[in-house]
Amino acid sequence: MHSALELDDLRVHHATAAGPLKAVDGVTLSVAPGETVGLVGESGCGKSTLARCVVGLNTPTGGSVRLGGSEIAAGGRDRVAWARMVQMIFQDPMGSLNPRLTTRHTIELPLRVHGIGSKNERLERVLRLMEQVGLGPHLLDRYPHELSGGQRQRVSIARALALEPALLVCDEIVSALDVSVQAQVLNLLTDLQSKLGIAFLFISHDLSVVRYVSDRIAVMYLGRIVEEGDSESVWNHSRHPYTQALIASIPERARDEKAQRLQLSGDLPSPVNPPSGCSFRTRCPYARPLCAEVRPELKSDGLPHSVACHFVAEIPELAARPEYAEA
């Protein structure tokens, strides 16, 4: 069976006055059918650009995007075929809905664009989708401004499910929601995972959230993946100093002294002129001269998962939860 998504050496370089901005710089990643892959990284790491490439909003400048085993023409000429393969849910629940369309029209829109069903069949389908995402039928004729944030996000999810795509890209879909509503949406997502067998590419800056929904986690820094592997393995046995810094920055964890030593100083370097060699070396506590010369490849020599670091053998692993490290 083909992967739901295969990215091969994906590159997105934008021309700027100061030189090429390498938003995504050589990412190879695959998502199996029904699998959830979490992509975690901070703002400016290129995760959103990557998501936009997957759904065809951005055109990669190098590498390829394959959906369900077939390569999609760069430039997204075949928008209709693409739409059946992959759909997307966005961060801002208000901005992702047309303020002039009711719940019914928003969810019906993909069906109408693809000419699916008669008017009555479509209404039936809309009601079924609403039930699936936990929206009562009384919300059918409401406008977005009459819905709560969580309800709006459910409408977005229903719209994305309407075409029954094999892959759903979720870009920071809970970060604009309150904690209690965030839990509702995350639970809905895990329910949909088990019921529908859709593959998810789940993008977030929050490692705890990513770990909760994902089978595998990929950590991105300055346009490249620095650590990738089974979700529990990355969470409990992280080896890349950047992943460790992310874990050490989780506020509950940040109190202990070991964590404070691993936290980062300084800011993200500009992606227009990234550091030579390993792009993380300017903030890395383990950096040596080799790191400035040779860019480390993502590899898994004798490790449970892949890490892009020259000195991975010397770095002790860090568990997000010390008491579960052995489990």
Binding site: D178, S180, A183, S208, R211, Y212, R321
Partner: peptide
């Protein structure tokens, strides 16, 4: 208690766990 149980802060193992959400809205 609901606020604490609603966040995926990683104090549990993932498999088989659900976040405890607070139904409804403020």
């Amino acid at each position: 208690a609901g606020l604490m149980a609603a966040r995926p802060h990683g104090s549990f193992k993932r498999t088989g766990q659900r976040l405890v959400d607070i139904p409804g809205t403020v």
